[in-house]
Design a binder for these strands. Structure first.
Length: 103
DNA sequence: AGTTTGACGCTCC
DNA sequence: CGGAGCGCCAAAC
């Protein structure tokens, strides 16, 4: 585990239920601006049997769930977010001005 | 050591 | 609002 990944995950763990953060926001909050892409890398590698990491509360800067290729785990992410009361717009976007968490 | 590759983001059009 | 283009940065080739 790279120390930077730990920093990203530490930030993500602090996002309260019902709120979201963009990859870029997480990177900035972790003190590593311009490393938004790296946040995605960290999340891809992580496995959380304990479920202590709310990975689903991270979306991209457009307020959309970032595509992961072939698997449909982005649908799961949407379900989890909606279960926390987050409302998706018609175009599948989340209003970050309303749900964006500022660490 | 040069190139490609992303769970990204911002500007333009 | 949707695309294209480009910058970014570490990893993997």
């Amino acid at each position: 585990m790279h120390p930077q990944h730990a920093a990203f995950l530490a930030v993500i763990r602090q996002i309260p239920a019902g709120w979201v953060m963009s990859y870029g926001a997480v990177a900035r909050a972790a003190g590593l601006p311009r490393h938004a892409r790296h946040v995605g890398v960290a999340l891809k590698q992580v496995d959380d049997p304990d479920g202590d990491l709310p990975w689903w509360r991270v979306v991209n800067g457009e307020g959309r769930i970032s595509p992961r290729g072939l698997d449909g785990s982005d649908d799961l992410q949407r379900v989890l977010l909606e279960a926390e009361g987050i409302v998706f717009a018609e175009n599948g976007r989340i209003d970050l001005r309303r749900y964006g968490w500022q660490a």
